[in-house]
């Protein structure tokens, strides 16, 4: 059995910035446990001598010349913003009370 526990799922929720309800944590713990047991088998054949492939087609040195292109207008940049002020995106306080 894998090591998925409710505490781990809760921690993953924090890392992934998803507020999980207790119900969700419970459900996900069970589901992920089954899924992880099934996908963990990749390590059976992933021996040290096998190189990892991150890109399906190997390319290298794909560059762009250092030339200015078309930019977004500020209206375009902000057009989907849930909240904006003074030409900038507005968010609620970043930290809670000072600790």
């Amino acid at each position: 059995m894998s090591e998925i526990t409710p505490d781990l799922v809760r921690h993953l929720g924090v890392l992934a910035r998803i507020r999980l309800s207790d119900d969700e944590v419970e459900r996900l713990t069970g589901q992920l446990d089954v899924i992880v047991d099934n996908i963990a088998k990749v390590s059976e054949v992933a021996t040290p001598d096998v190189p990892a492939t991150s890109h399906p087609i190997a390319l290298q040195n794909v560059f762009r010349p250092d030339e200015v292109g078309q930019t977004l207008t500020r209206e375009q940049a902000l057009q989907n913003a849930p909240d904006a002020a003074d030409g900038r995106f507005r968010v609620t306080a970043i930290l809670g009370e000072e600790q």
Binding site: E67, V68, G69, T71, L72, R74, A77, G87, R88
Partner: peptide, 15 residues
Amino acid sequence: DAPNSFGREPNTDLA
């Protein structure tokens, strides 16, 4: 390819 600039109006040098 947005300009690498300094001191411009907010959110104007964006791709």
